[in-house]
Structure formats: C-alpha cells, structure tokens
Design a protein around this nucleic acid. Structure first.
Lengths: 230, 230
DNA sequence: ATTTATATGCGTAAATTTTACGCAAAAATA
DNA sequence: TATTTTTGCGTAAAATTTACGCATATAAAT
C-alpha cells in the first residue's frame, strides 16, 4: 500500500475548575518550543504506540500534575489545515473537570507557568484553542443538564447553595433555589451528611454528597438525570 | 522540534438509512486491498492538505456516491493501537443520515460492492467497525430525542405513521400514536400538506413536512426539541 | 350493497410535574 | 433585643403528560 501521509496528531485537554462562583479553565505557558510565552491548553503530540487516552493523561500529568474527576473526548479539530502554522496537525480534544479547591500545580513540570483563568476573561490563546474552548464551554453547558457532572467540579461534600450557584453560573440562568433543591433531592442521588458548612451568615447549612453508585444503579433501571429550568 | 510520529489518520462514516420499518447501515466490500472481501464502513485515509470534513465527503462520494442529509462527527477511535493490524491508525468517525427511499447506491462495480444491512442483522465487520457502529447507534438513539434528525431519514413529505414507526423502531419503545402526534404538532415545526399518502388500508393520511427554517428560528428563541416517552 | 377491518384524526379527563411563592427556623450582626 | 441573612419545608395554581374513547374515511370481505 502506498500511503504518504504526513499529518500529525495531537491531544489537547480543556480542564475546567470552579472557584468562588466562577468557572475557570487551566492554561499553560510552556518553557520551550513553539508555544513558548503563549497561553495554551494542556496538550501535545501523541507518541507512537500510545493510545489517545494514555496521551491525554500523560499530558495532564506532565504539564499540570493534576488528577481529574471527569474526562471525556470532546471533538477532533481538523477542519483547518493551518490551525498549527508549522505543519498539518489534527487535535483530539478532551474535556476534563476537577475539584480545583484541592489543586496544587506542581513546579517541576514541562510548564513554565500554569494558571486558572475565568472563562469569561481569557488572554489570547495559541492556535485555535479559543475555538476548542468555546466548543468545550457549550458541551459543559449542555451536559450539565442531562448528566450529573456538576458534582465533579465541587468538593466531595458541598452545600446546596454551592451546587445551585454552580448551575446558575454555568448555565447563565436564574434558578429558583427551592425548586432546584426539590428537584435534585427528588432524584435520590444526593445524600445529606451530618456535617454543616461554615458560611458566615444565616442559618447553618447541611453538607450533601453525591452518591454515584446510586446514580449508576438508577440509570440501569431507566432513570434519566435531567434538570432544565426555563 | 524532534517529532517522530508514524500514526496514520483515517475517516470512517456510518451511513444510516431507514427502509420498510428497519434501520439500516451502508456497508462496503472492497475487491482489492487490505479490506478485500470484508464488509466495512465507508472510509479511508485522510490525504495531506485535506480537512477531515473534505476527507469524509470524498469517501462518501467515491465509495458510495451518495448525498447525505445529515453529517456530524461522532467520535475518534484511537484507544486500541492495534485496531488496524497493519499499523497504528486513528479513525475519526462520522455519522450520516440519508433518505434511502430514493437513493441509488453504487452497487457491485469492479472495485467494490455496496449494500444496506439492517443494524440488527449485520455480517462480521472489518477492524473495530462493530464498535464504531454500536457507538453510532447509541448516538442516534440519544440524538433522536433532542434534535429533529428523524426527518433526515424520511422523504421530504411523510406520513405521521412513518415518523412514529421510525421513532418506535430506533428507540425500541412503544409510543402512543395520538400523544406522539400531538406533541410533535405542538412544536409547530411540522406542517400539513394538501397531499395524501397511498397506503393500502384505512383512512387516507395526510402527508406532512418538516419546516427546518421554522425550527431554526424557534431554536434561536430558546425552543428545545425534546421527545421522550416513558 | 352492506358489513367488517384498518388506520387516521380529534378530543378529554385524570394523573403528574412544574412553577411561583409564603414563611418559620437558625445563625451572625447591629 | 432587633435586624439581616440564608436555610429548609410546604402548598396552591398552572402546565404538561398520560391513557384512553370514538367518529371518520377508505379498502377488503361477505
């Protein structure tokens, strides 16, 4: 077979975190190479013999040193042959969620600098990374309504007000606090703990936790997570 | 930059059609090459300088000679480095819908054979194409409930019973005929024509058509297509 | 010609879910 | 002690979903 193909393949990861009522994304500035001094998504070329999944996990470890709560393939970008000015590169983008309250970005990585940026206040990004990020934002917005992935952005135990704010912030919508709580609780996948959060004001609020096992069980029985608010 | 990468990139297309109350998929059997005498999805290697979109459209034209109603990227398969026994190949899979009632596929030429197969009665497929197909089936099932893509499998003008059967068949569910009709009509995106279908038995049924422009307009205003039946 | 079978088109009551709030309780602060 | 703030629970009205009934229009059977 004559196959003269010189296209290269890369993986990129959009890592979302949620801090102080803001949806943030992890960006990297590399020490060396083509991306020196430019903010970019975590990512790099796939190595021979490596799977896509291995490649993206390796990049997450090497460049950011983080363990994500959620990771799924987002989209493969290859409709602009000049998206990388050096040569033709197709990028398989992944979409990751972390509980960023416990994130410490290691110093001894390939990255010169790594920082959280609010998705609504980003610096100029390398290549077509802004397009990739927009796609990821849209996916997150959609998926939040039909899969229980919001929990992957919060600590294991959280307040209902935190969950509610996360939904309002990401979906950019007003949601009635009481109806939101009722609906989430009606699913039976979130459980009350004995602990209380430490907010300054108001009545002390119980901490809740997401029961993933219960969710998986219910899903097998036909349950469909769905929260949409007009 | 030292980049010694030998992974090759291909595109594959899962083409769905709907005939005689059956969801079918288009398969190709090549007479030469690595896929000789094996049923496989439409697909092939991406050429240097070609976009993914161009590549998949080229393959659809070359191998099947069809014009599809709907095309979207499905998933990129690259988590099994031996999915192609020859060398490491990553495949970007696309998902296509056609109105196969008036479709003439390029049958049995000297280079290949092309045929429709019911998705529930398939021959053994090449490589990991069965996995790709399963992914596509699941995507179709999901998407059918939240995007008006069922119309892309039917003729421009169709009977309500045809639309209803399509939903029942693909979702593998019983749906109340009268409630289904009411719900679809309530969206205001399907219009009655003056024409009637030619069924053998029963009261003559009006032909309907999908108004895509209206759908796009409503979507901009916040409308969300959604048909789920317990 | 009349009856029977089949599929269509419209309607409606009951059950369920969503929506829009009211309000008391538990804490911090003035 | 009063005020402010946030939480937690409740409930009535509105909207939607669900489960059907039934007349109608045609072809096929008698």
């Amino acid at each position: 077979m004559e196959l003269n193909q010189h296209i290269k393949i890369a993986v990129d990861a959009i890592v979302f975190g949620y801090q102080e009522n803001s949806l943030n994304v992890l960006l990297i500035k590399q020490k060396y190479g083509a991306l020196k001094n430019q903010w970019a998504l975590v990512g790099g070329f796939v190595k021979d013999g490596e799977t896509l999944h291995t490649a993206v996990n390796r990049e997450l470890a090497e460049e950011a040193g983080i363990k994500v709560n959620y990771l799924e393939q987002l989209y493969t970008f290859g409709d602009d042959v000049n998206r990388d000015p050096r040569f033709q590169v197709i990028s398989v983008a992944y979409f990751a969620l972390v509980n960023s309250t416990k994130l410490i970005i290691k110093a001894d990585t390939d990255a010169e600098d790594a920082q959280w940026f609010p998705v609504n206040d980003l610096p100029k990004l390398a290549f077509d990374h802004q397009l990739i990020l927009n796609t990821a934002k849209q996916r997150l917005k959609n998926k939040l309504t039909y899969q229980p992935i919001g929990f992957d952005l919060l600590p294991k135990e959280f307040l209902f007000s935190e969950l509610e704010n996360l939904y309002c912030t990401i979906l950019e919508k007003e949601i009635d606090r009481r109806n939101f709580r009722k609906k989430i609780l009606s699913f039976g996948i979130v459980e009350e703990t004995e602990k209380f959060g430490n907010k300054k004001n108001g009545r002390p609020a119980k901490l809740f936790k997401f029961n993933k096992l219960k969710y998986n069980k219910l899903t097998k029985e036909g349950f469909i997570f769905d929260i949409y608010f007009a």
